[in-house]
Each structure stands twice: as structure tokens, then as C-alpha cells.
């Protein structure tokens, strides 16, 4: 249909400036990451470079202690996600299935914590961790990430749970299953996709968090990726930009791919009422 072609061209023309600006930093990242060190600062500045220096990645890995930061990020993101999900799944189930006293107040509380940003409370959170003796301990991040993520995970989960027909569980009860049994055999298998998607978004949140990690973690051995890469840039006279960009490539590209693959679920979740 030619009219669709015409429409597509107009749309792409409209979108193209934004597309260029979005892709620009990716290009910068990739082009710098594989550039020889002595071609970083040339005058006039230019995109081109003489050879692909893939060794930059290996050098960067060793020099910046990338492996350790990667592990720390994984540790914090995975554990905080597990903790958030373990606490959120029953809460979301209760929200989507039962009436209970104070449900309205609880929903309001969730909405409010969803809005609470760690940055406003960062000093208080720091003092809390001092009081608990957990400053410099990665588990302080696990606890705070889980707590701040929970509002989001409960919302997402309950909006998906509400779309799983109640009849299925009721049919299982009538067929002779106990509540627990129907939960395990009927409900949870149907809820697996929702839980997986929610888990991945919670993981990405932890993976990307900066302010708390910057505040709570003192030793460079315990840095998570964002803080570690930031520390390569901040307050240094000489910044090894090719290493920094190689680090950002490794830290962002895998997450970006997973996210791109999953973004339609996020849109769906929002349409279902995570935002509404």
C-alpha cells in the first residue's frame, strides 16, 4: 500500500533527529573504546582512527579491576531482586485476590514509596547503615535496593496477577485442590512470565543505581560498575577515556539488549495499570 510507505517516510523523517541524538553516545562509546590511546586527544577532533584496538578491553579489564566491579554489581542486583520478589509476590497476590482491612491505605503507602527517591533520604540512609554497622558492606545496598524497588515490583506483579482469571483457581478448588496446592500448581506457573519480567526490571534498576552505591561503598574493591566507572572519571587529572568507554560498552550493551527485548512487556504492564 503506497500510502503506508508515504506515512512511514514522514514518520521516520520526524523521528530522525531524535534517533540521531539517541544513537550518538553509543557511537561515541564504541568508537572511543577501540581507539588507540594516542589518538584520543588529536586536534582537530575527529571520528576516524587508524586501527581497531580490541586489546583496550583486556587492558581495561585488568587495570580498572572490572571483573570485581562486575561481580559486585551482579551480587547486589541479584540479591536485591530476589529479596524484593520474595517479599512482593505474596503481597501482590494478596492485593489482587483478597479484600482486607486497610487495603486502600496500603495501596496509598505503595504509591508514596514508589515516589520516594533515595537521594532525598540519602543522608538518613547513610546514618541508618552507620547505626547498623553496614557502611562499606554490599548488603547495605541489597537491603535498600530491595526496599525501594518493592513498590514497583508489587505494582507490576499485582497488575499482571489481576489478569489471571480467578476461575482457574476456583476450578482447581472444586476439583479438590487445597488453596496452597492450587497456588503452586495453577497460579504460579501462569504467573512465571510476569515474575520473570518484573525480576528483570528490578535487576536493571539495581544494576544502574548510582547514588546509594556512591555513598555506602567506601573501598574500591566493593565498587559496583556505575561507581567504578565514575571513579575512573571523577577527580582525576588524567582520564583514560578509551578504558572508560570500553568499560561503559561492557556494562551497558548487554543490559540494553535485554531491555530492548523486554520493553514491550513494560509498556503492557503500564497499560495494565502499573501507572494508572
Amino acid at each position: 500500500m503506497p500510502s503506508k510507505l508515504k506515512k512511514s517516510l514522514i514518520y521516520w523523517a520526524f523521528l530522525s533527529p531524535l534517533v540521531v541524538v539517541i544513537l550518538f553516545p553509543f557511537a561515541v562509546m564504541l568508537v572511543t573504546a577501540v581507539r588507540p590511546r594516542d589518538e584520543l586527544f588529536v586536534y582537530p577532533p575527529r571520528w576516524g582512527f587508524s586501527e581497531f584496538r580490541w586489546d583496550n578491553f583486556a587492558e581495561m579489564w585488568v587495570k580498572t579491576n572490572f571483573g570485581e566491579a562486575l561481580f559486585n554489581s551482579l551480587y547486589v542486583s541479584v540479591l536485591s531482586t530476589v529479596l524484593a520478589l520474595v517479599l512482593s509476590i505474596p503481597a501482590a497476590y494478596a492485593l489482587s485476590r483478597y479484600p482486607f482491612p486497610g487495603k486502600g491505605a496500603y495501596r496509598t503507602f505503595l504509591l508514596m514509596t514508589q515516589m520516594m527517591s533515595p537521594i532525598v533520604l540519602v543522608l538518613g540512609l547513610f546514618r541508618l547503615m552507620v547505626a547498623l554497622g553496614m557502611v562499606g558492606n554490599l548488603n547495605s545496598l541489597v537491603l535498600t535496593y530491595a526496599a525501594f524497588n518493592m513498590a514497583f515490583t508489587i505494582w507490576m506483579l499485582q497488575s499482571y496477577f489481576s489478569t489471571i482469571p480467578r476461575d482457574l483457581e476456583e476450578a482447581a478448588w472444586i476439583d479438590g485442590a487445597s488453596h496452597l496446592n492450587s497456588l503452586i500448581r495453577i497460579f504460579l506457573p501462569l504467573a512465571v512470565p510476569a515474575m520473570a519480567v518484573t525480576a528483570i526490571f528490578s535487576f536493571i534498576n539495581g544494576w544502574n543505581e548510582f547514588v546509594l552505591a556512591l555513598t555506602m561503598i567506601r573501598s574500591s574493591d566493593d565498587f559496583t560498575l556505575p561507581v567504578q566507572i565514575y571513579s575512573q572519571v571523577a577527580g582525576r587529572y588524567q582520564v583514560e577515556w578509551h578504558h572508560v568507554m570500553a568499560g561503559t560498552v561492557l556494562a551497558t550493551v548487554p543490559v540494553a539488549i535485554v531491555f530492548s527485548w523486554l520493553q514491550k512487556y513494560l509498556i503492557r504492564g503500564m497499560a495494565l495499570g502499573a501507572v494508572k
Binding site: P25, P226, F259, Q263
Partner: peptide
């Protein structure tokens, strides 16, 4: 493409722009 910036931590985005 439009959703990409969301996938990347603000820190990384800012680091890359600082260099760009």
C-alpha cells in the same frame, strides 16, 4: 531505539556525554 536511553544508567549516559 526511542526506548534505548532508558536501558542505560544515567551515570553511564552522563560519563559518555562528558567525553563526547
Amino acid at each position: 531505539i526511542i526506548m534505548l536511553p532508558w536501558a542505560i544508567s544515567l551515570t553511564m549516559t552522563a560519563v559518555v556525554w562528558r567525553w563526547a
